[in-house]
Simulated assay, not measured.
Amino acid sequence: MKQLTLILGVLFIIGCKDSPKIKQGPIDKVVNESVNTNDNAGILKNNDSLLVEKGKMYAQSTQKVLGRNLLLNIQNNGVLGAVAFCNEKAYPLTDSMAIVHHAKIKRVSDKPRNTNNQANKKELEYIESFKSKIKNNESYEPILTTENGNTQFYLPIVTNTMCLNCHGVPEKNIDPKVTHLLQEKYPNDKAIGYKENEVRGIWSISFNNEQNN
């Protein structure tokens, strides 16, 4: 059981979970580069609903590929080997899924483990929006923006108990050996100190509205 817990914990190095509180219905539409916080923003057009589902599919399929490959590495090389694997292969695998979907797929954060995952100004605003809703125990939607035939899709990555094995408090949640290796691989690591049910980052996905994959 302990080994299973460790395996599942490290699995969440590459991203924890999509929140179960995502509603089915109107989304948080973004107009003129600003977050629309009006809960009565209106009913989604059919095309918007399709774009939301497409964004979710891209995020979920990429997460499955990352998770499957990481779990295989854990089975072959152990937990510490999986940390090294994530350091070396998470980006190439994400890029490969971006090619498959003809999309730009990123996982970004206000507290990145890898500095390449630092959220930009706009993404930081959306992270704070998701944080506020989760903190207040509110349901929320993926954020969708469209401009010139392109869609930008944002979906939060929310911590659960398993995530804390790699993103919790060192010594309390994270094994010292894992902490040591993380410090070695990620000297500028900020992705620690989380509690359960907190926004660790977001999926930031861009794709052409006309693509059918």
Rank of each mutant, 00 (worst) to 15 (best):
N69C: 05
E53S: 15
S49R: 04
N73Q: 03
M57D: 14
R68F: 15
N47R: 06
L50Y: 08
Q75E: 15
N46Y: 13
E53M: 13
N69L: 09
L72F: 02
V35Y: 07
D39I: 12
L44F: 07
N46G: 05
N87C: 01
A84F: 03
R68Y: 13
I43Y: 08
V52N: 01
E88G: 01
L50M: 10
F85K: 00
N38C: 08
D39N: 10
G55S: 09
A82F: 04
G42T: 04
L50Q: 12
C86E: 05
N36A: 08
K64D: 15
F85Y: 01
V83N: 02
V65Q: 07
T37H: 05
S49Q: 11
A41D: 09
A84V: 03
A41V: 14
K54Y: 11
K64V: 12
L51Q: 13
D48N: 15
N38A: 11
G55P: 08
L66F: 08
N40C: 07
V79F: 05
L71M: 09
Q75C: 13
Q63D: 11
Y58D: 03
V83W: 01
L71C: 04
T37K: 12
I43L: 13
V52L: 06
S61H: 10
C86D: 07
L80S: 04
L44H: 04
V65S: 06
Q63C: 02
L70E: 03
L70G: 01
Y58K: 07
A84M: 09
N40V: 04
V65Y: 04
Q63A: 13
E88A: 11
L50T: 06
L71Y: 11
G81Y: 01
M57I: 14
L50A: 12
R68A: 15
L51S: 10
N73G: 02
A59W: 00
T62F: 00
D39T: 11
N38G: 06
I43V: 08
